[in-house]
Design a protein around this nucleic acid. Sequence first.
DNA 1: CAACAGGCGGGAC
DNA 2: GTCCCGCCTGTT
Length: 279
Amino acid sequence: MSDKFTIKLNDLNLKQIADSGQIFRMNEEEEGLYRVWFREYTTLVEEKDGSFVFHCGEEEFNKVWYDYFDLGLDYAKVKALVDVEDEYLKTAIKHGYGIRILRQDLWEIIISFIVSQNNNIPRIKNSIAKLCALTKDGSFPSATVLSQVSVEELHSYGLGYRDEYIHRLALKTVKGEFVPESLIGLSYEEAKKALMAEHGIGKKVADCICVFGLHHLDAFPIDTHVKQILAAHYKDGFPFHRYEGYAAIMQQYMFYHDLLNSKKAAKTSPQKVKKTKSK
DNA sequence: CAACAGGCGGGAC
DNA sequence: GTCCCGCCTGTT
């Protein structure tokens, strides 16, 4: 119960991952203490004196969290692929050195990224928290649970027009007409195509599901931010060939860096404080 | 007030 | 196939 397991790990930063946009409910419960979830498992993790403390036994760490944090992949090796003259990516990696692509639960990722479309992070997090409140233990609701929730109730979770997409896919899944597990053995292209056949899943969301739900690191989701980054820093095209098999990781460094920049920009140029008219 | 947010579906062409 | 529009809703 009060088991703890401490291990030294490289290329890992919990805050960076929590803020990287690949996960919407890795919350910081106390200073430096993050909660992560995988299916029926949940644990707290913290960084302490250069090591990571998992609030679970070594057995659970080996069984669940080792893979969840993608610890089998050497991210230093991936970073080493970067062109020494690519100042943008070098800076991005400097700021997001501890980002890893988590191996999250596929169903949770499918629903979460449907929620994420044309949406902002605080609202996405709020909606997903409400979905998770449907279960007793706070785990992510299964297709069965979701299928029993009315569209009206889903709408009340702030899901907007995405309510129907979720309801529809949950029903289809319960009926066996959509089988998430069947995507697992497919190639990236096949999986993307199968995902895009579902209502509410387009190109971008399918790519995100491929990366974060199926760990296809050769995918490269292009959202409005990444599109702008490419236009600003890679006018002659992004060197995908250089990062074969790992483009998704580069995308994460870029995306995270852009988020940091926009946050900083919002801070340095705060919204004008309107002088309140004296009444 | 309009524009935008980690887009998508549907229709026009 | 590409282009364009409307869409839930909170924030800037």
